[in-house]
């Protein structure tokens, strides 16, 4: 009798599971960049934290000259709450919402005004004749439990990192994304290459912890007028000079 009951139970459980179409890779959630102090005991480590140093060492001469002629403040669109691309945010600030749907995944960065939103399309290749955009065109495919994301089609208005390292529209980014530690952490291994701006590709790894807290509203704008006033008075001459150099 015991065996019969056990059989009924197992069959019921199997029937329930078969009808329960839960995706196996649901990474939905809010993630924030983890620091090495927290990661160390887990056997995890962010790789290549000083990205400015890494990138500057790889800049081609023209790119280095442009970087040196660029005013870090005056030419930083992110400082006036306008888009500044997606190269700087994930390895430095790194707070994002991960929202999968059937045919694409949406990454909403906490700094929504500047880093904005990325959509990673799962069922299509890159379109031909892409118009350059701040965040490029991202397509992804699964390689086992890893999502491999290929992004091209960037404009050349953003900077690779805080020292204002330039890049071109040829920039190509490949990311390998997966969750580790039973989904508690999100790992992204990123490779950035640009044959016109860099002498070789650079790579870095970051870990993001899944948060139980809600994503908070983060509107870049409260301080915008104050910044503009300061910008116009103090930095306009520098901006003009930087434009002439370009």
């Amino acid at each position: 009798m015991r065996n019969i009951c056990l059989g009924i139970f197992i069959l019921s459980a199997c029937a329930f599971a078969a009808g329960n179409d839960v995706p196996t890779k649901d990474w939905t959630g809010f993630y924030t960049l983890s620091r090495d102090k927290e990661l160390g005991p887990l056997g995890l480590k962010n790789v290549n934290m000083d990205l400015d140093k890494t990138i500057i060492a790889r800049l081609q001469p023209w790119a280095k000259a442009k970087m040196e002629a660029t005013s870090g403040d005056a030419d930083d669109t992110g400082a006036v709450c306008l888009p500044d691309g997606i190269f700087r945010n994930p390895p430095f600030a790194g707070r994002f919402l991960w929202l999968p749907t059937k045919d694409h995944i949406t990454m909403v960065f906490h700094e929504t005004n500047t880093a904005g939103v990325r959509r990673i399309y799962l069922n299509r290749p890159h379109p031909r004749n892409l118009l350059p955009t701040w965040n490029g065109d991202a397509v992804g495919k699964w390689d086992g439990d890893t999502l491999v994301v290929d992004t091209i089609g960037f404009n050349d208005k953003s900077w690779l990192m805080s020292a204002m390292e330039p890049h071109t529209e040829e920039t190509h980014m490949i990311e390998r994304m997966r969750t580790v530690k039973d989904g508690a952490y999100f790992e992204i291994v990123t490779v950035v290459e640009d044959r016109h701006a860099l002498t070789s590709a650079y790579t870095y790894t970051r870990y993001y912890k899944k948060q139980k807290d809600e994503i908070t509203e983060n509107i870049c704008g409260d301080e915008i007028q104050e910044w503009k006033d300061w910008h116009n008075k103090a930095l306009k001459p520098q901006l003009e000079r930087a434009k002439q150099v370009k």
Binding site: C81, V108, T112, N113, G116, V117, I219
Partner: peptide, 12 residues
Amino acid sequence: VMLFEDLSRGVM
């Protein structure tokens, strides 16, 4: 979640 194409004005 509701996202707006005009992200600056609509946000999320």
